[in-house]
Design a protein around this nucleic acid. Structure first.
Lengths: 337, 337
DNA sequence: ATGAAAGCGCTAACAG
DNA sequence: CTGTTAGCGCTTTCAT
C-alpha cells in the first residue's frame, strides 16, 4: 500500500516533457501520436507506476465501457454460459461486463437495475421479461439499449433474445405422448419466483390439456431454483403418491438428475419403469447413466447474439427494436427411450 | 430511448427550488436535510426520471464502492459460492462487486487486473497466489487492500484467505491408505494452468512418496478445468491401462462424477472394485449413487471472510497483513467405504 | 439545515 | 502530430 496519492496523467506529462493531452492520446489505440513519443510516455508511465483513471475518463467522455447484466443466480451453468457468450462478444470492443444477480426476485431486480444504471452502462441485458413497473420505467427511460433475454415478453422494452419456455416444454410433452406415454408429471418449484420455471410449468399444463390429458400431476419441490436434492425428494413423493406415472418432466436438468438418482436408490428402472426429462442441457445430463433427455436452449448463443446487438446498437446500425428467437433443441437420450 | 440528455442534479435542484448541494445531501443516508425538503427533492427526482450519476460522484469523492474480484471461471459452483459469500458480506455497506474471470490463465489475469484497477476499486480479491511479476507489482502498488484466496501463497501480497490444496489431498491419501488401499491414482488436468489443480496433484505425489507408495498413476485428462466427460475418459484409460488400481482421487467432484459414471457404464462396482474421491463438495457428490467422498473447502466462508477483512481494512481497523486459514473438511461417503 | 465556490482527472473541441 | 482551454456532474470545504 502506497501512502502517497497515486500519480496522475499530469505527473506523467510533466516528467515525459509533453502535455497531458498527448499522454491521454498515447493511451488510446488509434490516436495520432508519433511512435517515439508514445513509447517514451508509456515507459514513463510504467516507471511511475501510473494507472489510468477510468473514473475521470468516464465522466469527461460520458462513456464507461460498461455493459450491465442481470442474471437470477451467479451459480447456474446456463446463465454463466450466456454471460460468457456476451463477455466474449464484447471483449474486443473493450466493453466490460458489470454483473449483478437478482436471486430470482423482481424486487431485488428493481434495486439492482437502479444500482447498475447509476454506473452509466452503455447497454443493459436483463434475464427475463417480467419486471416491476418502476424497473420497467427505469429501463425505458435509460436512454441505452435494453435487451431482455431467456424469454419472449408480450411487451418488450427494447430488444429481445429469447425463446418460449412454454413452447419448449410442449415439445417434450409431445415427445412423450408420441411414445405412448400419457400419465405425465411435472416437477418444479413451488412459487412463481422463477418466471421461466413458471412458464415451463404453464406450458406443461397447456400442452397436456390441449391433448385432453390429466395435467394435475404437479410436484412442487421447494423454493426455486430447485436443487438436485429437491428433485430427488420430489421424485420420492411422486413414486409414493402417484405410482402409476409413466414419465416426468423436470424444470431443470439438475432436478432431473436428482429425480434419476432417487430412482437408482429405489431400484426403479429408467426409462423402463419411468421416463425422465430435464431442461437446459447441463453437462451432467450427457454424462449420467442413463443420459438425460433434455432441451438445449443454447445459452451461449443467447449471450453472443445479445453482444452482437449491443455492438450494432452502439454503432447506430439498428433502426428499431428487434426480436431474435433462439430455437431450443429437443435432445432425446436414454432416460426416455 | 430518450433522445435528449438525462437530467442532472442541477436540474432537480432548480425545479425543487434548492441548491444542488441540498439535492446531493438528500440522496445520502445520514446527511442533515429536513425530512420535508428531502421527500420533496426525492419526488421531484422521481418525476423527472433523474438517475444519480455515480461516475461524477466517483471522481469527486475518489470513491467508487467497487470491490474488484478475479475468479478463474464464471462457470464453477465453488467460485460462485465464494463470490456469493463476498457479495452478501459487502452488500450492506453498498459495495458492489466488479467481477472478471481469468480463464485459468495468469497472463489473462494480468490484463484483467489492470482493467479492474483502472476502475479504482476500493479493494481487490484475487483467486490464487501465483501471478505474473507485473500483476504482482500492480497489486502491490495499488494502494488498496489486496486479498489472495483459495491458496496459501509463499509470499503473500496482502491478506490471505485460503488453505493448502496439497495438504487437503494428503488427508485423502491418508484416508485411503488407512483403509488398506495403496494402489492409488490421481486424475487431473494435463497442464499447469490451474494452479490449485497443480497443487493438488503435487500434494498427491508428495503424500504417496512420503508413505513409500507408487505415485506414478497420474492420469492427465485434458486442459484444466477438466469436465465430467474428461473425468469419464480418464477413468476409461485408467481401467484399461492400470486395472489393478484400488482408489482414485480426482481433482474435482465434476471429474470424479464423470469417473463414477464410467464405472457404472462398465459395470465396475464403486467402491467394491475401486474407490473414488473428488474435491470441492459440489452438490452432485451428495446426490449421486453412490455418494462421493470429497473435500469441502468452504467456498462461501472464504468469500465471507474476505468481505469481513475488506470492511475492517476500509475502516482502518487492520494493522498489518493477515492470513486466515479455512480448514477444509474431509467428507467420507459411499464411494470410498 | 442550507448554500457558494472550487475542483476531482481526464478528454472534447478547437487551434496550430 | 501536439497543445490550450474549458468542463463533464458531482462533492469537499468552508460559510452562514
Amino acid at each position: 500500500m502506497t501512502p502517497r496519492k497515486p500519480p496522475t496523467m499530469a505527473d506523467v506529462a510533466r516528467i515525459a516533457g509533453v502535455s497531458p493531452m498527448t499522454v491521454s492520446r498515447a493511451f488510446k489505440r488509434d490516436s495520432s501520436v508519433s511512435e517515439a513519443t508514445r513509447s517514451a510516455i508509456l515507459r514513463t508511465a510504467e516507471d511511475l507506476g501510473y494507472v489510468f483513471d477510468s473514473t475521470a475518463s468516464n465522466l469527461r467522455s460520458q462513456k464507461t465501457d460498461f455493459v450491465a447484466v442481470t442474471i437470477p443466480s451467479i451459480n447456474n451453468a446456463n446463465f454463466a454460459d450466456t454471460v460468457g457468450g456476451l463477455a466474449d462478444g464484447l471483449k474486443d470492443r473493450g466493453l466490460q461486463i458489470l454483473l449483478g444477480y437478482t436471486n430470482y426476485d423482481i424486487l431485488e431486480e428493481e434495486r439492482l437495475i437502479e444500482q447498475l444504471l447509476r454506473r452509466r452502462p452503455e447497454a443493459i441485458v436483463v434475464t427475463g421479461g417480467r419486471h416491476t413497473p418502476r424497473a420497467r420505467r427505469m429501463l425505458e427511460n435509460s436512454g441505452i439499449p435494453v435487451i431482455e433475454t431467456w424469454d419472449l415478453p408480450d411487451k418488450p422494452i427494447g430488444h429481445v433474445v429469447g425463446f418460449s419456455n412454454a413452447g419448449a416444454v410442449r415439445r417434450m410433452v409431445d415427445h412423450f405422448v408420441g411414445q405412448g406415454l400419457t400419465r405425465i408429471a411435472f416437477i418444479g418449484g413451488d412459487a412463481d419466483r422463477d418466471t421461466r420455471g413458471t412458464d415451463r410449468r404453464a406450458g406443461f399444463i397447456a400442452a397436456m390439456q390441449a391433448l385432453g390429458l390429466d395435467a394435475s400431476r404437479l410436484i412442487a419441490a421447494g423454493v426455486p431454483p430447485i436443487s438436485m436434492r429437491e428433485g430427488a425428494e420430489a421424485m420420492a413423493r411422486l413414486l409414493r403418491d402417484v405410482p402409476d406415472t409413466q414419465a416426468v418432466i423436470c424444470v431443470s436438468d439438475l432436478s432431473a438428475f436428482g429425480a434419476l438418482s432417487e430412482c437408482q436408490r429405489r431400484g426403479v428402472a429408467v426409462p423402463a419403469d419411468i421416463s425422465i426429462a430435464g431442461f437446459g442441457d447441463y453437462e451432467i445430463g450427457s454424462v449420467c447413466v442413463p443420459t438425460l433427455s433434455t432441451i438445449n436452449p443454447f445459452p451461449r448463443d443467447i449471450g453472443a447474439r445479445a453482444a452482437t446487438l449491443i455492438l450494432e446498437a452502439l454503432e447506430g446500425r439498428l433502426s428499431g427494436p428487434t426480436i431474435s428467437q433462439i430455437t431450443p433443441e429437443l435432445l432425446i437420450r436414454d432416460s426416455s427411450k
